[in-house]
Amino acid sequence: MNAVRFWIVAILGCAFAGGAFMYYNLVYAGYAELTADQVGEIQLLNVATDQPEAILSQNVKGIDTVKDGVRLSGAISYRVCFDTPSSQAMLSETYVIMDDAVPLNAPSWFDCFDAQAIGAALETGDAIAFLSEENISYGVDRVVAVLPDGRGFVWHQLNPCGEAVFAGDNTPDGCPELPEDF
């Protein structure tokens, strides 16, 4: 009877240790904090020129799963928070607005990025989402959302081409060709 208890405790202990290890790797170890220099300029796509343009930004903080130039996870792990003195009115007159922006969750320790609050602000119209860069990697767009108080957020999200490819479906018309190494 004692041997059975020992093995039950050993199996449960291994399961707990494995679960804790996986949780740590997903939430903490996989992400690296980015400096403002590593994030670079916050850019939006200009309506008139169809070219990206840098906007004014300060207090830039970011995270990603890139370490020493190697991506440890998918391209949608990128998150940035910043402040901008530019008004929503000026931004919406100048840059391409995105109607289908949906922020993705960030790790809880990156507390400036609250996907639920950003998503709710987008639904109510308090926040406006802009296209920053289309196909930053195949099927992934960079999105920037700005609140009325000047707080801004950046994330990567799948576009229709990426959604189709990752679902195993045929790509919709207008999608770029899949890279050979994809």
Rank of each mutant, 00 (worst) to 15 (best):
E33I: 15
P176Q: 04
V39L: 06
Q116I: 12
A36Y: 03
F113I: 03
S86T: 15
L12N: 00
Y31G: 00
R79V: 05
M22H: 15
P176A: 12
Q116L: 11
V96C: 10
E41Y: 11
Q51N: 05
Q38F: 04
F21N: 08
A32E: 13
Q58G: 15
R142L: 10
L131F: 03
D114K: 05
L131S: 02
E93M: 15
S132R: 00
L72H: 11
M98T: 14
V102S: 06
D173A: 08
S137M: 05
H156D: 12
S137W: 13
R79S: 06
N135P: 11
V60A: 02
V102H: 12
N59M: 14
T49S: 14
S92Q: 06
S73T: 13
D37L: 04
F110Y: 12
F6C: 08
N159G: 05
Q43V: 14
Y95L: 02
L56Q: 12
V143T: 08
D173R: 00
G19T: 08
V4E: 08
L158T: 07
D169Q: 05
A115I: 00
W7H: 09
V9T: 14
D126F: 02
G19R: 10
I97G: 05
P179Y: 14
A75K: 01
Y95A: 01
S137K: 13
F166H: 13
C161T: 01
A120L: 08
A145E: 04
N2V: 15
P160L: 03
D50F: 12
A127I: 05
P172A: 09
I11V: 14
A32N: 15
A127L: 03
M90Q: 14
I8M: 15
A121V: 01
E93N: 14
Q38W: 04
G62S: 04
N135I: 02
I136F: 15
F110P: 00
E133L: 14
E134S: 13
I128G: 07
A89N: 10
V60L: 05
Q58M: 15
D64L: 07
N25R: 10
D149A: 04
A120I: 05
A54L: 10
K67H: 07
L91R: 07
C81K: 10
I97Y: 02
D50K: 09
F16S: 14
A167W: 09
F21D: 09
R79K: 10
F113K: 00
I42K: 00
E33C: 08
S73P: 13
K67P: 07
G18N: 09
T49C: 14
L56K: 13
E33T: 10
Q88R: 05
D37C: 11
V66P: 01
Y28L: 12
L45N: 06
D111P: 11
F182D: 12
Y23M: 09
C14G: 08
Y78Q: 11
Y95C: 01
D50C: 13
